[in-house]
Structure formats: C-alpha cells, structure tokens
C-alpha cells in the first residue's frame, strides 16, 4: 500500500511539472532548448533556497526525474562541496553531483551512434 501511495505521489507531481512545460511550449514559441534551460536553472534556484528538498521527500522520483531535479542536484552538490571544501567547492560541487548522469548519457550516445542509423519514420 505504501508503495502504491509513493507511486501515485510521484505520478501526480511529476505529471504536473511536465504539464507546466507543456503549457509553456504551447503558449510561447520558445524553442525546446530554452525551456530546458529554464527548468534546470529553476531547479538550481529552488534547490538553493531549500524548496526542493521537502518536495523530493514528499514524492521522490516525481521531483527527481524532471529536469528541475537535475538542477536541484547541482545546487545540492555545490552546497555540500562548499561545506566540505570551502572556496574550491564552488567549482567542484555541481559537476561531481551530476557526473553520473552526464557520463552515462555520453557513453550511451556513443554506443547508440555506433550501432544504429537515424531513420525518417
């Protein structure tokens, strides 16, 4: 039961965050890249001011999987690094926090490019 409640929470919050993206997409002529940048930067700011952590606690992946979660990861990383290492942490925290995601994406980009060909349909 607890499992199911967690899933529903993630579904609703995650769905709503995506819905915000869709509203921006439909109402403006912003290209996708601009919207993605907006989401990540919003995530960084929300993470920094401490809004994102309670949201993560509430719905887990519902807040972690959208790109705002990626932004939050960056600011959490910086926060921790500054705590531990001071000045150098400013430049270290963000990248080390998102290193796994980006590295996996790059590696799989290369693998997929090796195996497949782009298709029209």
């Amino acid at each position: 039961m607890e499992f199911l409640v967690s899933l529903i929470k993630a579904f609703v919050v995650g769905g709503l965050i995506c819905l915000i993206g869709q509203i921006i997409l439909n109402k403006t002529s912003f290209p996708p890249a601009k919207i993605l940048v907006g989401f990540v930067v919003a995530g960084v700011i929300l993470g920094a001011v401490g809004v994102y952590r309670p949201l993560l606690k509430f719905c887990g992946a519902g807040a972690a999987v959208p790109l705002t979660g990626f932004g939050n990861l960056l600011s959490e990383g910086v926060k921790e690094a500054v705590k531990k290492e001071g000045f150098l942490g400013i430049f270290k925290g963000g990248f080390s926090a998102c290193a796994v995601g980006i590295s996996v994406t790059i590696v799989f980009g290369l693998i997929i490019a090796l195996i497949f060909k782009p298709k029209r349909k």
Binding site: L7, V12, G14, A61, G62
Partner: peptide, 9 residues
C-alpha cells in the same frame, strides 16, 4: 510525464 516519474519512483 507522470508515468515516467512513477516508473522512476
């Protein structure tokens, strides 16, 4: 979006 997040969860 919800489904992907639920799968993530």
């Amino acid at each position: 979006g919800g489904l992907i997040c639920a799968l993530g969860e």
